[in-house]
Computed example of a mutant assay.
Amino acid sequence: MSSDDPSAALDDAARERVVRLHAGEPTLRERTAILSWRAEDPAHEAAFQAAERLWLDLGAVRAAADAPAAPVTPPARRRAPRRATLAACAAGLAAVLGLGLSFQPAGGWGVAFADVRTAPGEQRSIMLGDGTVVHLNGATALDYRFEGGRRSVTLLSGEAVFAVAHDASRPFTVAAADTRVRVVGTVFQVSRAGDRVSLEVLEGLVLAGAGDADTAALRPGQGRAWAGRRGSRVVPVRIEEATAWRRGRLIYRNASLQAVADDLARLSGDRVWVLGAVAKRQRVTAVFDNRAPDRVFAHLEDTLPVEVTQPLPGLVIIR
């Protein structure tokens, strides 16, 4: 399933220019073209700054990791004045906070402080207070709140299957980006990567949409996808393939390379960018072991006209 998203296209265009600027040796003509593109529209500049900020932050992390350890020196005999000690501590704390506030984990700080989260490659099942069972894929984070007559979950990132406990008096809702899923008691899967959301219904009836005008009813074996507030039509889905991750497999049948990249990000914990028109046109039909993301990257490079590189820790580029 797919849905065109102008904001995603803008982000990709900005990322391509950041990679061209920082990962190679751009010519004067290329630099001028990048500056012209940034000046065309404030949205271009905002997208470029966001992509460049991530690039520079990841570079700072690598520089910190590669820096040699400071030599150990014996303590001075004289005790430093308390004011100087406090000043040094404050400076160190400011440096740490400066990096921390600039460098955000994938999905933002909301993911880091989520009620429930899994590590990349980890799978876990939990039971909520109402008896609903949630099966979480890797790199998944969610918040939940049950109060009064409401049961609500916010999927911050990742992928999860919800087996909702039936309670007609308290509808169960899942929010993922701009999409809202509403049920009483059923089983469905929701995945989120940024503002891209997909839904597959395994059992029961689900109402889902990005706004009242977009809401549609989905039955078992049906699914939809959204990019921001732009939703696709309801389409048939193969449930066994969509939920294959729970059995240790990734199954793709003519899937977009971006869909594969989203899964690889959940497995590896890296940000995975698909850049360039050639890479975006590629489709994948294959079965992989989801415990070996490196093999999936290698397979993509061996079988498709794309190159996989890791210019910085935590960032993989397919182009």
Rank of each mutant, 00 (worst) to 15 (best):
residue 2 S to T: 14
residue 8 A to H: 06
residue 9 A to W: 01
residue 11 D to R: 15
residue 14 A to P: 06
residue 16 E to R: 07
residue 24 G to E: 06
residue 25 E to G: 11
residue 25 E to Q: 11
residue 29 R to V: 14
residue 33 A to R: 12
residue 35 L to T: 12
residue 36 S to W: 00
residue 39 A to D: 13
residue 45 E to G: 03
residue 52 E to T: 00
residue 57 D to T: 04
residue 58 L to G: 00
residue 61 V to P: 01
residue 64 A to G: 08
residue 70 A to Q: 10
residue 76 A to W: 00
residue 76 A to E: 12
residue 77 R to D: 14
residue 82 R to D: 12
residue 85 T to Q: 13
residue 85 T to S: 12
residue 87 A to D: 10
residue 88 A to F: 01
residue 91 A to S: 13
residue 92 G to N: 04
residue 96 V to L: 12
residue 96 V to T: 11
residue 100 G to H: 06
residue 100 G to I: 01
residue 102 S to A: 14
residue 104 Q to K: 10
residue 107 G to L: 05
residue 109 W to C: 02
residue 111 V to C: 04
residue 112 A to T: 10
residue 115 D to P: 08
residue 118 T to M: 05
residue 122 E to G: 07
residue 123 Q to T: 15
residue 127 M to T: 15
residue 128 L to G: 13
residue 129 G to S: 15
residue 136 L to I: 10
residue 137 N to Y: 06
residue 137 N to W: 06
residue 138 G to D: 12
residue 141 A to C: 11
residue 152 S to L: 11
residue 153 V to C: 08
residue 163 A to P: 08
residue 176 A to T: 09
residue 181 V to Y: 02
residue 184 V to T: 13
residue 185 G to E: 01
residue 204 G to T: 03
residue 204 G to Y: 01
residue 204 G to Q: 04
residue 220 P to I: 04
residue 223 G to V: 03
residue 229 R to V: 14
residue 233 R to P: 12
residue 247 R to Y: 01
residue 257 L to C: 04
residue 260 V to L: 12
residue 272 V to D: 08
residue 273 W to I: 03
residue 280 K to R: 15
residue 281 R to M: 05
residue 285 T to D: 09
residue 286 A to C: 04
residue 291 R to G: 14
residue 302 D to P: 00
residue 307 E to L: 13
residue 312 L to F: 02
residue 313 P to S: 13
residue 315 L to A: 07
residue 318 I to Y: 02
residue 319 R to E: 10
